[in-house]
């Protein structure tokens, strides 16, 4: 029983990571109706930046904040330079640009930081807590994730800028008519998504170790989480991310074994799309046959 409880708690801890990435995906989806396939690679790149700063002797949390800021700027830049010119192009073009971004970022990561697997420090006291039920890092990273998700919620719910961003995402034409600079809102959305991804990367790296493909699997779970919760519903995506974390851990331990964990994500994705394409909390999306 204790083992089961531990698996659930560990699932919630990794679920927080998935929830963050899922939220980043949903934010871009809401604004542009596209899923950023490169979200994971961008986060990995950010995590390497953090490691470089830490290795250069920066205090952990300072490196953390700097990385988040740098990632935000990179996200804004990517939107301005790469996505803006194809804003009105076909879905195929968008998917193509995202794939191009995946290729460039992931290989650039390997090129700049090399491919060896690197350990990543945790800022938390890393020992078993509560009689081995949860590790210090799990507890700490879950707390960080929850704080970040909370801040994002407050930002969108209660600030002018957050309101303008939501307006631009829901109804760009009307947003322009009240004077919202929609183009910049999209760029800010990209920046925020990149920053959230960076935090997720930094929090997960001590667990899975840092290598250029670190986030590939995580991106898949985040997809699954976002779809499960509803790809157009940020709150749903967060819940979906946590749920997928728990499902993955329990499924990996008791049903399919760790080797097929990724396949589990695929099964969730297909299952959700077939049974309830809108997700648990999403509005019904169109499905043309």
């Amino acid at each position: 029983m204790n083992g089961f409880l531990h698996q659930v708690i560990a699932g919630i801890a990794t679920g927080g990571i998935y929830a963050s990435v899922a939220l980043a995906l949903v934010m871009i989806y809401q604004a542009t109706h596209h899923v950023n396939f490169a979200q994971g690679e961008m986060a990995t790149f950010s995590t390497y930046i953090a490691l470089t700063l830490v290795n250069a002797g920066w205090p952990f949390w300072l490196a953390f904040l700097a990385t988040v800021a740098i990632s935000f700027c990179l996200g804004v830049m990517i939107e301005r330079v790469l996505m803006r010119p194809v804003a009105n192009a076909s879905v195929l073009t968008h998917v193509g640009v995202f794939i191009g971004l995946v290729l460039v970022v992931s290989n650039l990561t390997g090129w700049v930081f090399d491919y060896t697997v690197k350990p990543f420090p945790t800022p938390f006291h890393d020992g078993p807590l509560l009689g081995g039920l949860i590790s210090g890092h799990e507890l700490g990273s879950t707390a960080v994730t929850l704080v970040v998700l909370g801040l994002v919620f407050l930002f969108f719910r209660y600030t002018r800028l957050g309101l303008a961003m939501r307006a631009a995402a829901y109804n760009p034409a009307s947003a322009r008519l009240v004077g919202v600079r929609v183009g910049w809102m999209l760029a800010l959305g990209w920046g925020l998504a990149a920053a959230i991804g960076a935090i997720a990367g930094i929090m997960v790296a001590p667990v899975v170790f840092l290598e250029p493909n670190m986030m590939l699997g995580i991106l898949l779970y985040a997809f699954a989480g976002a779809l499960l919760g509803g790809i157009d519903n940020p709150g749903g995506a967060v819940i979906g991310g946590f749920a997928v974390g728990v499902i993955e851990n329990l499924g990996g331990t008791y049903i399919v074994g760790t080797e097929l964990k990724l396949t589990l994500a695929l099964v969730i994705i297909i299952g959700v799309l077939l049974v309830r394409p809108a997700g648990l909390f999403g509005r019904v999306v169109l499905s043309r046959v």
């Binding site: 109706h33 396939f37 898949l220 964990k261 990724l262 499905s287």
Partner: peptide
């Protein structure tokens, strides 16, 4: 089943398939 998925969802699902293939 892919019929029921719009352009983007199909891309996403098939991408997931591509990632999962080596594991399978």
């Amino acid at each position: 089943p892919a019929l029921r998925l719009g352009g983007l969802y199909l891309a996403l699902t098939t991408f997931s398939l591509a990632v999962a293939v080596p594991q399978i």
